[in-house]
Design a protein around this nucleic acid. Structure first.
Lengths: 345, 345
DNA sequence: ATGCACAATGCAACCGCTTGCCATTATAGT
DNA sequence: ACTATAATGGCAAGCGGTTGCATTGTGCAT
């Protein structure tokens, strides 16, 4: 590999001049610039990014760590969308994305700090999904910039994050079901230990409260974001007889699909007898029959915004705190309809 | 940020000793090792990976470039699976994954060479999907290790790759349809410019040939991997009347789903009247009704194998060439059945 | 002519870690 | 007591760019 010194020697200039010629910043006479480029070309010289990073203390890289062992991470559309958003902004701002794996929640933190501590990246986007580990507290103790996807506990007022207003949009979705005449509405959440699950549950309750409906604990279940979780939730709740839900809200589309499968098995028609609403607008939500009514959560946009905030923090030396909600949208498709007492089983 | 010298000063040793203590390779007396770690701890020292990379000429990073502008890349399960496989092996071998974006096929090459030229990674996994650009030829001209996911043109005998035997498995899938009694079988391919599409078409032809069926050009269409592509293919072919296909092979599940949607619209029952077979075993293939018979292509495994080969090439200095097919599997579900002349429209 | 501003390069010290080589010291063997 | 040998750790030269400062050269006003 040719180095800057080889090029300098061949062009008959000082290495620093070559550096300046390549950086494009300094003024170099057109003549020597030519000589340098010719020499570089002849030697097939490409500046070494690592050396440059060491010198300028900037890697032009943002990082993210992905718990690669949770298969759901790759089946749900969440992860691909996040990468997509990240990549798009990073590309456009001349950054690369460094992805680290992790095989547990604890390891996730370890990896995050390893990347940051060893300065492999200039900043990191953190998928802060667990409540039980204080990643944020630790992150604040160090100076590398970071942005959370997902709002942290309220007492961390001084960190940047991007999130969907899960409570609000869940409330909206459930309110829509209520507006369709449903009163017995089930909530099929994801992992109860995850922040979004709690936020959504709050939204669910709020919607019921606003309508003066008394929530029944039997209507609440957790499917851990898996299709089978939705399925078993229905198996249990459908037995509730007079108290059986006439509508299901599921915290992701996969579970909603599981709900629909269970209903099909039980010969309960959707949406004629029971309505189902999902979350995320995963590709399959559109392909399933009936097409699933769902809350579109723009994960790619969230990640893009996070990347944008992060890169801005990296490139400007000041680090303004940015906390932003993105807009979601209720996509009404064919799995929801008005409550029809006459058609109830 | 504390450096190795700071630690050395505090521990009263030479920087090189600190380096050795951290690398764990050299023999250091237990006593000084302790002093060094205590000092490092006190100073919150973390070795700088960039500096280390520059010195050892190894980044412990493998790269991949993703054409982030093709939305299909993120909707099909291909890309997430690839990342997953890569990440898993990289993690386990102590590597990170550097992802670069690209916004066109040409740019894909540019980015690939930029990463390699600037030595931001030790090697790269290349998604070599286009026939019209000679990435492989260019890659061979440089010395950084690389592995292709997808077999290159046959005349490149000396490069490493991992692939599914698309021809063979397509043939197997179509043969299964023939075995079910179907004779008029449609082929809905992806992008005709992409290598896998041609390979699959070959397999399709081979299966027909083997059964002595004369292929009808009307049965061949290209859906560019999009759901709508499958839909329109059916719209055209279903009008073929006596020559209308009684079975459809689609080169991905998304198109197969489009095929099923079109058939539903036309009130043609699957599998009673017409059979449909997809490819890839995308998550939705299981959730759709009827569940889609499909060819499972283990993209995660392919990527994992590619990463394995790449990292081995990086860590051993010799670079054996590895060329491997992974096994696919025909998953027979509910969208295919025997040909029933009585039920034809 | 003289001085001065300014453009174009050169010089050399750095960025932080690694490692071949050598010096020192400890341990052992006779 | 006296080397031979092994175990430690210091020295310094890298790895390949970058950049503040010094130096040289050129044109222009005085």
């Amino acid at each position: 590999m040719a180095t800057i010194r080889d090029v300098a020697a061949r062009a008959g200039v000082n290495p620093s001049t070559v550096s300046r010629a390549f950086s494009g910043q300094a003024k170099i006479s057109e003549d020597t610039r030519q000589r340098i480029f010719v020499a570089a070309e002849a030697l097939n010289f490409h500046p070494n990014a690592i050396a440059r990073s060491l010198s300028v203390r900037r890697t032009q890289t943002i990082a993210i760590v992905i718990p690669h062992i949770f298969p759901g991470f790759f089946e749900d559309s969440f992860f691909p969308q996040v990468i997509r958003g990240l990549l798009e902004v990073a590309y456009q701002r001349g950054f690369r994305v460094l992805v680290g794996g992790s095989n547990s929640h604890e390891d996730n933190i370890t990896q995050t700090f390893q990347i940051l501590g060893s300065q492999q990246a200039d900043g990191i986007v953190v998928l802060s999904n667990r409540l039980d580990v204080d990643t944020v507290g630790a992150l604040r103790k160090q100076k590398m910039p970071f942005v959370l996807v997902g709002r942290p506990p309220a007492h961390y007022a001084d960190v940047s994050w991007v999130d969907a207003d899960n409570e609000r949009y869940t409330q909206m979705a459930v309110a829509y079901l209520i507006q369709q005449g449903h009163q017995r509405i089930a909530f099929v959440g994801g992992d109860p230990e995850v922040a979004v699950t709690r936020e959504r549950l709050k939204g669910y309750q709020a919607a019921l409260d606003a309508a003066g409906i008394r929530a029944c604990p039997e209507w609440i279940d957790y499917g851990y974001f898996a299709e089978a979780g939705g399925y078993t939730a229905v198996q249990r709740m459908a037995r509730l007889d007079k108290m059986a839900p006439t509508a299901y809200y599921a915290a992701n589309d996969l579970m909603a699909i599981g709900v629909m499968r269970a209903l099909r098995t039980l010969q309960i028609a959707v949406p004629d007898q029971v309505s189902v609403i999902g979350t995320n607008n995963a590709p399959e939500s559109l392909h399933v029959v009936p097409a699933l009514t769902t809350v579109h959560v723009p994960y790619a946009d969230m990640a893009a915004l996070a990347a944008e905030i992060l890169i801005t923090a990296i490139t400007n030396d000041e680090r303004p705190i940015a906390q932003r909600y993105v807009d979601c949208e209720l996509l009404i498709r064919d799995s929801t309809g008005p409550y029809r007492p006459d058609r109830a089983e």
